[in-house]
Design a protein around this nucleic acid. Structure first.
Length: 849
RNA sequence: GGGCGGGUGGCGGAAUCGGUAUACGCGCAGCACUUAAAAUGCUGUGCCCAAAAGGCUUGAGGGUUCAAGUCCCUCCCCGCCCACCA
């Protein structure tokens, strides 16, 4: 008998699949299309670990199952290859990023190939290919023409290690998302995409997609829309009167305001420092303010966090009038107020906001109560626990007195608008997307700076602006990319007026390239357009997008933004790119930690394959380890279990083939090999499994589908040796050889989405010429699946006391009667009167005494 | 502080609508095969009890119900994301 040897069969089928083109998609309108996509990976020189591979295994199972169900499946793969790792590698080794990427792509492709994923490889794309980034640049210009790409000088996050600016989304806990070093603020002129114009749509349209609540919530929080009111306060003691507009979501408490705080970056603060506005009463404060602001702005985010909630600040000398009660409020500066949210100014209500309370305590500012506390408490607020933030009734608040907070908010907004004190508005957490990078390895921004015409787009016929070869990739840290040192690149003529001009030397954030790649897959080699609209409209939106949750507020937000812009530009007919998003759970190392090089705890399929397990066992384990969307620690010994299971499938098919080989013709000729009872038993076992696996796959319940396959195989092992007409120790294949063949074929088909190589090999051995992966998914026979007899549990007073086996169509009365007569049940009923009897169809009988 | 998940044997996990808790796999134990081991096959395996009978068991406590892992209330713990967002 042939032994199961993955090393022998897996590479063989991988080659055959590549030649046979069975995974290549065409725009065949006769079939239902399904676009299954996994986030295109960043190719590195390293080995993938089992966590990366889970992502592709899930996608491949969905793709293969859909294909066998007659769908027209698009399942492409490509490379997101711009970015720092290749560039840092170049700096270290002198090997150009272009060369490194070529090698890394080879490395990654080989690893995906050896896992046997069903990708449409001719559609392979690479974001660093000029033929691709030509269109990334084209989209940049489209955004520019629509006023959605603009340049602005402002304070930005700067990573001193990677020597580049970063977008808000790419700063995590005050650290660079790539290298983990502390970031700083730096004033630089930068390119932005105006994603804030789409804030409302990005938040609202989440209602139309089938994503997990977790990711939707993350995006909604990131957009951070908050309704409030902008209230205008006027200075009372400045030489020239100034206005401060303050955003507040809680105008209800404003009778209790005792101060106003400005962010250090607030423009009025600058006016104080420059002495443009000087209070005409009291000492001058501008020097103290200047000192404070200087100290604050150079603080890193981490330093701020280390200070904890300890409030710092300084009084400006200015006062404003509270329009509600004409009280004078001192104006302070403090870094607990963020320049980027609302208007960069807050009104301090220390009795009813914890931060304001802490600030008032710190600087001995009065605290007033305008909200009644629990149990009617109206004592002065002196301790943090007494601060009333969310519940209560208003007092000391003129027209609001007696109202609950929620009613008071609305009434106050109405009042303020009516009296012209303020205007309802919304504020957002979302900032514009900073896309320029002062690094080499990215798509050049296609802009030429002319002294006369300003920023001028590179004409479309001159795209792509090709990234030139350079001698040194080292970023200078002076706010310019290495491209600034390439005169042939920089010095050009203005496309508008022909005067001497200079090219933009910053490159685009890699997330620009990944914001449209899923569209390019529909038409990957189009040289004249980013894509043909008809093709994109055929395949898109993506039906199943499978990836990790780490992209929640980066890629997934950016891609939605680009899609909406393209929709507005009428390039496409849909405005959400990913209908269903599936976030796979992370595979942790066996020690329960995240897998990483630095922990030295990665587990790599490459190694496991070399050890002889084979891709199929690994794929099976990736799915069997637990629900696909839940994290799980890799189980080293468990892999032996999935291997063993495949070996059992292999063995039973081989035994069948071996044992029926010689007799087959004889059996056929003589009409032998017929045992009806045995046939039903075999067919019933497999058809139950067809039903279970099919239903589980509809819900992506891979782990239970695989469990069902294991049960089925265990059952078939018993059947082949245990049937009464079987001799001890022998198999009974020849007694039902046709049924055995049909059902083993069904079993192999059910296994195909998970373990494609062994399925293909056994399918071929069972006599099929065409691939199992384009065979139609088996259908279960309803009659075979239905049970003739069922087992009912019998409860007495809620406790299970016995079991009865009855015909499936038993009536309620009969079931209850049978239950009562059960020996064990009768014992428990002895001498008692049955008060109530319940029959749950097909489940149990419950008797109450 | 806010949002989202989750807590079931020694371990990963299973359990449509509230209906026999612990499927399947790992691990462990035993048996067969073998000179032996590995591999393979078979059997057993939630806890208490020598066994049977019986009792107990889904993070803790309470409630609803003939019946609760599942529903309701109070609380504890773990993970992820965001966080001085006015």
């Amino acid at each position: 008998m042939r032994r199961y040897n993955p090393k022998e069969i897996e590479p063989k089928w991988q080659k055959i699949w590549e030649k046979s083109k069975i995974y290549q998609a065409t725009e065949d309108k006769s079939k239902l299309k399904r676009y299954v996509l996994e986030y295109f990976p960043y190719p590195s020189g390293a080995a993938m670990h089992v966590g990366h591979v889970r992502n592709y295994t899930i996608g491949d199972a969905v793709a293969r199952y859909s294909r066998m169900n007659g769908m027209n499946v698009l399942h492409p793969m490509g490379w997101d290859a711009f970015g720092l790792p290749a560039e840092n590698y170049a700096i270290k080794t002198g090997i150009s990023p272009q060369q490194a990427v070529t090698k890394n792509v080879e490395n990654f492709k080989a690893q995906l190939m050896q896992m046997g994923f069903s990708y449409d490889w001719p559609r392979e794309i690479n974001s660093t290919d000029p033929a691709y980034y030509k269109w990334t640049q084209w989209f940049f210009l489209m955004l520019f023409e629509r006023g959605l790409a603009y340049q602005q000088e402002s304070l930005q996050w700067w990573c001193p290690f990677d020597k580049t600016v970063l977008a808000n989304e790419q700063v995590e806990n005050g650290r660079c998302w790539r290298c983990g070093n502390l970031v700083e603020k730096k004033a630089l002129k930068q390119w932005f995409f105006k994603i804030t114009d789409y804030a409302d749509r990005l938040a609202d349209d989440l209602d139309n997609v089938n994503w997990s609540e977790a990711i939707k919530a993350m995006q909604r929080n990131w957009v951070g829309r908050k309704e409030g009111i902008n209230v205008t306060y006027k200075t009372t003691n400045a030489k020239t009167q100034q206005e401060i507009t303050i955003f507040t979501g809680r105008p209800d408490t404003n009778f209790g305001a005792t101060f106003v705080v400005l962010a250090p970056e607030h423009q009025l603060v600058q006016k104080v420092i420059s002495q443009e506005i000087i209070p005409n009463s009291g000492p001058s404060h501008w020097q103290a303010v200047e000192q404070y602001v200087q100290k604050t702005l150079i603080k890193s985010e981490i330093e701020r966090q280390e200070e904890g909630r300890l409030k710092t600040g300084v009084f400006t000398g200015l006062y404003v009038k509270n329009p509600l009660n004409d009280k004078d409020l001192p104006v302070w500066v403090s870094d607990f107020v963020l320049a980027g949210f609302g208007t960069g100014a807050v009104v301090g209500v220390p009795g009813h906001d914890m931060r304001d309370f802490e600030f008032a305590k710190q600087f001995d500012i009065p605290i007033e109560r305008v909200v009644v506390g629990p149990d009617g408490d109206i004592s002065p607020i002196t301790e943090p626990e007494q601060v009333q933030e969310t519940a209560g009734r208003m007092i000391n608040s003129g027209p609001l007195d007696g109202l609950e907070i929620t009613d008071a908010i609305e009434k106050m907004r109405d009042l303020m608008e009516k009296k012209n004190m303020g205007k309802r508005t919304k504020s957002y957490h979302l900032r514009d997307w900073l896309i320029s990078r002062q690094r080499y390895w990215g798509a050049p921004i296609p802009i030429i700076h002319c002294p006369k015409d300003g920023a001028v787009p590179v004409p479309e016929d001159q795209l792509p602006v090709v990234l030139p070869e350079v001698k040194s990739y080292e970023p200078s840290g002076d706010g310019h990319s290495p491209l600034a040192n390439v005169p042939e690149f920089v010095n050009v003529k203005c496309p508008k007026c022909g005067a001497d001009a200079q090219r933009e030397t910053d490159t685009m954030d890699g997330f620009a390239c990944s914001s449209w790649y899923f569209l390019r897959f529909a038409d990957p080699h189009n040289a004249n357009m980013p894509f043909d609209k008809a093709k994109v409209d055929f395949w898109l939106p993506v039906d199943d997008y499978i990836g990790g949750a780490e992209h929640a507020v980066m890629h997934l937000l950016y891609a939605r933004f680009w899609t909406k812009v393209m929709f507005d530009e009428k390039l496409i007919d849909f405005d959400e790119p990913f209908i269903t998003l599936r976030n796979q759970g992370m595979i942790l190392a066996p020690d329960g930690k995240k897998m990483s090089k630095s922990w030295n705890n990665t587990i790599e399929p490459d190694q496991l394959i070399k050890q002889g397990y084979g891709a199929d066992s690994i794929r099976l384990m990736e799915l069997f380890i637990g629900p696909w969307n839940q994290a799980a620690a890799w189980n080293v010994e468990g892999l032996g279990g999935t291997f063993r299971f495949l070996q059992r499938v292999w063995t039973i098919v081989q035994e069948y083939l071996d044992e029926t080989k010689d007799q087959r013709s004889k059996i056929k000729d003589q009409g032998m090999g017929h045992n009806a009872e045995l046939e039903v038993q075999i067919a019933r076992t497999v058809h139950k499994t067809i039903k279970k696996v099919s239903q589980d796959l509809e819900e992506l319940s891979f782990n239970t589908a695989i469990a069902a396959l294991m049960e089925c195989v265990n059952e078939l092992y018993k059947i082949k040796g245990k049937h009464p007409s079987t001799k001890l120790g022998a198999s009974n294949f020849e007694l039902a050889y046709k049924t055995w063949k049909t059902e083993l074929e069904n079993l192999v088909q059910l296994l195909a989405p998970f373990a494609p190589h062994i399925a293909e090999e056994l399918w071929a051995e069972l006599g099929h010429k065409a691939s199992v992966h384009i065979s139609p998914w088996p259908q279960w026979d309803a009659q075979l699946v239905s049970e003739e007899f069922i087992t009912l549990a019998v409860q007495v007073n809620g406790k299970v006391r016995g079991e009865i086996v009855v015909t499936a169509d038993i009536s309620e009365e009969e079931a209850i009667e049978t239950a009562k007569n059960n020996e064990k049940v009768a014992k428990n009923l002895a001498g008692k009167k049955i008060k109530k009897a319940i029959y749950v169809q097909g489940r149990l009988v419950s008797l109450v005494v």
